[in-house]
Amino acid sequence: MNPATGYAATISSVDVVAPALRRFVVSRTKGAFPAISPGSHGVFAFGNGQRTWKNAYSIVNRSEDGRALEIIVRRAEPTRGGSDFLYRHGGPGLNVSVLGISNLFPIVRTGRRHIMISAGIGITPFLSYMTEMRKDGMDYALHHYTRPEEADAFRAMLSPCDPSRVRVHEGRQEAVASLRMLLAREPVASHLYVCGPGGFMEWVRQTAATVGYAATKIHSERFISPAGGRVFEVMLARSGKTITVGADETLLEALENAGIDAPCLCRGGACGMCRVGVINGRPDHRDHVLTGAERDSGDVMLTCVSRSLSPTLTLDL
């Protein structure tokens, strides 16, 4: 694999899982994708000629021969457009390169029992978890929360799974009623994994803490779909360059478009690889990585999701 261009592939099939959900199979033209650990995400690059997007999606499945990866994409608000573009225009034949595959949300293999709680599109990492858990004879259970109109779609998606281990809960009312009880019923050795919208994950985490889960037994992956915002200027102290970050691009994308070799990995505010020093200006932190103290100090930021509160930022780049 060439780290700059990644694994070349094309979309080989698309199917409609629910009105707002599409499943894409991305196949290599030659060779295979590497083996993948459950919970991995890939950074997928695709575009329309005018614009390239690089978005992270959980890998739901890798085919036995390694030629194909499967992802599920929810139509997003077209603020930056990556998922929206894929949802609308991602059809067979579209070129997609997989720039890198990494895992920020692995199964804790020393765990004796694993309980997975997901909402909506947050199901995706757990589809790969369950393949492995079934194969390895691990003890697990999945509780999936969905809005009623998508319940049938998720039931269909989960139909190959062992019905005694999987449960679909419909609507907010049932969520509130069931979660506390099912978490409290778990043995003390269980590891809890949460994936879904930010507010949902926070609610699950708090509920788990209330019924006595140790923080080290609660695992989550908090990807952020980078949102746009006000236009701002960035001055690069080392190279002396000044660049403008547009309303619908991220700071990281603006750096890359200007030919700056900026570090990055997950592109979703989850890993911390893209942290850079801030020399001047006030960053608008939108990540889940920096500590409170780092945030308050204002001298470091993550370029993939964060923006600026001041009209200009000076970075140590």
Binding site: M1, P3, P34, G100, I101, S102, L265, C271, G272, M273
Partner: peptide, 11 residues
Amino acid sequence: LRFLLMLQHGR
């Protein structure tokens, strides 16, 4: 440690 936790396959 922070660096290694981010180590990527193939690199």
